[in-house]
Design a protein around this nucleic acid. Structure first.
Lengths: 177, 177
DNA sequence: TTTACTGCAAATATTTTGCAATATC
DNA sequence: GATATTGCAAAATATTTGCAGTAAA
């Protein structure tokens, strides 16, 4: 129910954007691809990367190319509907040809409400409600800057990984003594 | 003066890290490359990317390869001495083969003190002092997560770009009427 | 003397771009 | 009918990796 409301609002917002762009700039067009992509994006509960998006689309509906996906994601960012996050993978972690966690996207409506806790061990991401003072602090700077959206990451070790490491240390001590 | 003090503290901190790693893990080594790289990093006032670092090194001292640079930067992150930032370039900005602003690094000591304001028009980065309660808020979550460092970005339009756009609109209106 | 580090070049992954065909306005 | 969008493949970029030589412990 609630989800559908957000869904509708997002779609409406996209259409207003298209209309506005049409009047001012050189115009953006409404296509079935863009509609479908935005629909699927709304169905994600949390963050998603471009591959998750593509496989979701290809499973349920028609094929969309990577080029179109990249293009559409940029259009949606321009429309202020989604946000791009570059989460870092930490230091010398398991790195199979990639330095960082794949670039992630998120519905802006959702992103506005939280910060991210990223575990540098297992790369899990926890959402943490915004600190109450954050909004005021950001809007207090309006004379220097017109803030739009944000992406905040706190890096550290999640509870599970911390426990795991502790256990491993204990195991080692046991075998030594 | 003040700078030299930080410089010294950072170097000492690196040496303690090397020592500790030597005792526990398989050991990290102190090399002239790493020493020199850390020195040059301390000389940056703000953020830097890998190319800035390399040219600075090559100008003043000996040649260091990219492979070594990448390796050393990861070691320094593991040591908790520097932080990696992935600033985003915004939507469909000027994109000459790159989606985002080159990955930037910063001395952790400095990074701990501020958030970043990134202009999605001109990609300038302004530093903004941490909100007063940020630290407390983060450490209040210690039972869920062991926080280590953070990277926070607020995106929007900087004053200069806002003014520029306004001016352009006015110019347009003038030519029309 | 062991093995971590360096540098080069090759491999990999991600994103952008050029172009022809198509669809939207 | 003009031109924005799509999809494919090719190009560009950034980072990692394999390996041989070197140097720190």
């Amino acid at each position: 129910m609630m989800e559908d409301k957000i869904h509708k609002e997002v779609r409406d917002s996209f259409y207003s954007y298209l209309k506005e762009k049409h009047d001012t700039d050189k115009g953006r067009r409404k296509t079935e691809e863009r509609d479908t992509i935005l629909d699927e994006i709304c169905n994600f509960k949390g963050h998603f990367d471009i591959n998750m998006l593509q496989s979701k689309l290809n499973n349920t509906r028609f094929h969309v190319s990577k080029a179109t996906l990249y293009n559409t994601l940029n259009v949606l960012i321009d429309a202020g509907l989604i946000v791009r996050h570059h989460f870092d993978a930490g230091s010398i972690a398991h790195r199979p040809h990639s330095p960082s966690i794949p670039v992630m996207y998120e519905l802006r409506r959702k992103a506005d409400t939280h910060l991210h806790f990223i575990c540098t061990q297992c790369h899990s991401i926890q959402e943490v409600k915004n600190p109450p003072f954050l909004k005021e602090h950001i809007s207090a700077l309006k004379n220097r800057f017109a803030p739009d959206y944000f992406s905040s990451c706190v890096y550290g070790t999640c509870k599970r990984c911390k426990n795991r490491v502790q256990k491993e240390v204990q195991e080692n001590n046991r075998t030594i003594t």
